[in-house]
Design a protein around this nucleic acid. Sequence first.
DNA 1: CATCTGTATGACTATTGGGTCATAATCTTT
DNA 2: AAAGATTATGACCCAATAGTCATACAGATG
Lengths: 211, 211
Amino acid sequence: MPKQTFFNLPEEKRMKIKDVLIRYFANKPYSKVDIEDIAKECKVAKGSMYQYFENKKDMYIYAINEAIRLSLELIKDYNFEYISLFDYVEKSFDLTWEFFIKHPDAYLLLERSAFYDDSPYKEEIEGLLKGKTKELLYEIIVKNQKTGFIRNDVSPEIILIFLEGATWSIKRFFIELAKSRGVRVTELPRDYVDGIRKSYMDLIKKGISNI
Amino acid sequence: MPKQTFFNLPEEKRMKIKDVLIRYFANKPYSKVDIEDIAKECKVAKGSMYQYFENKKDMYIYAINEAIRLSLELIKDYNFEYISLFDYVEKSFDLTWEFFIKHPDAYLLLERSAFYDDSPYKEEIEGLLKGKTKELLYEIIVKNQKTGFIRNDVSPEIILIFLEGATWSIKRFFIELAKSRGVRVTELPRDYVDGIRKSYMDLIKKGISNI
DNA sequence: CATCTGTATGACTATTGGGTCATAATCTTT
DNA sequence: AAAGATTATGACCCAATAGTCATACAGATG
């Protein structure tokens, strides 16, 4: 937890530091992030950073928690309780997309911390992150199998893996595509993105076989 | 490239160093790998490592190339030319599985170097790795679309992403499963693995919809 | 203005780890 | 066996960087 000093800071300065922390930890592996750089970017001395936070880990965990908060803000008033699996997958893609557009660094930070990174606190963070959405998705799968909306000859665990792989790779695809074109994901033509997404959803539904 | 000195080394020592390099770079991010540790494990002085290799990058690239060589050895006498997509996906899963069982560290190294790692040479390595199998898979997809074996209302690029995500996540799943059970992947019951794999292939073929 | 409390600073310390090099050990050649 | 070539060694150098701390500064209080 950041120290009291940090919370006493004027709003603007606190926000600035938050943004910079998220940006830095989002774009470099933990061990490559230099506190000196962050301090410079925040226009404070390195020592000050240590007046605000216990240590580097504290800064990192704080950044992640703030990123989680940002992501939850988008989801909070959406009720996933009674929803079909396909709607869920589409909706969750939409929400992730929106999240990425609004807070790209926060998105990248969460992605990185969840399964790219070399930070020593990975387990700790995975607990925070994956658990909930995974459980929710699992429940929805089971429900949808019961209602006969999706096939039930395959165990929900396997469908879960399948869906996770599929949704992850399509997101990655857009991120890589944007990178290779030298633009931001926001700048990819919306109808192009939607077209691919639609085809992709159809693959998830019906598979690649020729029917 | 390793220096001549390295190739002059007695076979046994060279193999030892190769194995240790692969093991270390496979299990830690590049920046966390300490040459001193590697030297100790190889029972040589740190300085000797620098008689054999130019620098750390040289050791890393060498390890990756050796891992690639190991993987190619398994594929080399298999002809993918005229094969159905499903057979290809199954066969390539088989081969990967075999590779993983025989050379788990080499497998993990390639996986890590391709998309987990923080090494500064990622682009360089991605070129070595992904290109070929990706191209091959793409060709097979196109062929299979032409022969009407798989649907052609979705572009081959999208099917490619879909397949990559799917095959990656199932492999990941088994690795994580083994880890969480505290066993090696080799120790997972074969029929269990095959069962999941079969269901999974079916998901790829027919999707999750209830038909 | 004087004192007190909290905040800001950057030089400094300590550690880590890649890479070097003079020297010693070993092997080859004649 | 002597000279010469090759290989092995680990103390040393140096850059990077997490974390500290004495000191300076600023704002509030009376």
